[in-house]
Design a protein around this nucleic acid. Structure first.
Length: 293
DNA sequence: AAACCGTGGCG
DNA sequence: TCGCCAAGGTT
């Protein structure tokens, strides 16, 4: 329960000199632009998001512009960012913003959480980065920096605990302006310096205060949940089908689906799940396409 | 609540 | 080479 957070000053100073000039951080960005970046950045690295974000906001500068587009367009614009359901959710969120919030991205936590694709992290991030509201932002970067610098653990736990949230709250400056800088700065430190695999502790502005470094970087103790293998997975099969439908200008015949993945049983399972998820539409005469509604 | 959901780069 | 990792969310 630090009365003053000893990490705040050195972190803010480092951020002022080292922050990347990401376009969604520009002073003239809108809440919608920030919101689009947050959807795209869910599990997708910055470098791949950049061109997609620029194209998206140029085409759909406001939620209303996006809401007016047929549903297949966001999925096509999404390209190969991965997890294309995020494109559908962002599109649906834009329509809900128009229908329920007068076309303006809502600023309060409950309204944000009511939108598809916005969970605890994204709601807090939009509040902090788009509206400058004090909020507790806990993403993988921030959680890792806190785990190391404050708790002395190599990595955060598999899921956020109440204690962790309370700690993050304590660390977050109380003023709105300082809290927004803190959130952006500690996230940036986790992305650039305090990385998961090869942290650059020799460049870290928090090295003097870091508990993990002081204890000579002990290894993570606990169970590590491994990500499922992607090669040969249903996810890869779904991705292959989605790729075919994305690249096609309209619907495709069944033969095109069949050509996308050789294993028939797995292909049928993947196609069925895509249809069930509303990602693919089954059309007359055994044709398939992206839902255009 | 563990499992699922894409894609690509890096060590 | 291949497992790990990436500004999570949903069921």
């Amino acid at each position: 329960m630090p009365v003053t957070n000893p990490l705040e000053r050195p972190l803010a100073r480092w951020f002022a000199r080292n922050a990347r000039g990401l376009p969604w951080r520009a002073t003239d960005r809108t809440p919608w632009q920030v919101m689009v970046s947050e959807y795209m950045l869910q599990q997708t690295p910055v470098d791949r998001v950049l061109p997609a974000w620029l194209a998206w906001i140029e085409r759909w500068p406001t939620p209303a512009d996006c809401a007016a587009a047929p549903a297949d367009q966001p999925v096509r614009m999404w390209g190969r960012l991965g997890y294309p359901r995020r494109a559908r959710r962002l599109h649906e969120a834009a329509r809900r913003i128009v229908a329920d919030f007068g076309g303006e991205v809502p600023a309060d936590r409950e309204s944000l959480l009511s939108l598809p694709g916005i969970g605890d992290y994204t709601a807090a991030a939009i509040q902090s980065f788009a509206f400058g509201t004090r909020s507790i932002v806990l993403d993988t970067n921030i959680r890792r920096v806190i785990a190391r610098a404050v708790t002395g653990q190599a990595l955060p736990l598999p899921h956020v605990t109440t204690a962790e949230r309370l700690l993050a709250d304590d660390l977050t400056p109380r003023s709105a302006k300082a809290s927004a800088i803190w959130n952006a700065a500690i996230m940036e430190l986790g992305a650039l310096i305090c990385t998961a695999r090869a942290p650059k502790c020799e460049q870290c502005p928090l090295a003097e205060q870091c508990k993990w470094l002081a204890e000579d970087r002990p290894e993570y103790v606990g169970t590590v949940r491994r990500q499922a293998r992607f090669e040969g997975s249903d996810r890869q099969a779904r991705g292959a089908i989605m790729s075919v439908l994305r690249e096609a200008s309209s619907s495709v015949p069944q033969s095109a689906i069949e050509a996308s993945w050789s294993d028939a049983l797995q292909r049928e399972r993947a196609l069925a799940s895509l249809i069930a998820d509303g990602m693919v539409e089954s059309l007359p005469r055994k044709r398939y396409g992206l839902p255009a509604q």
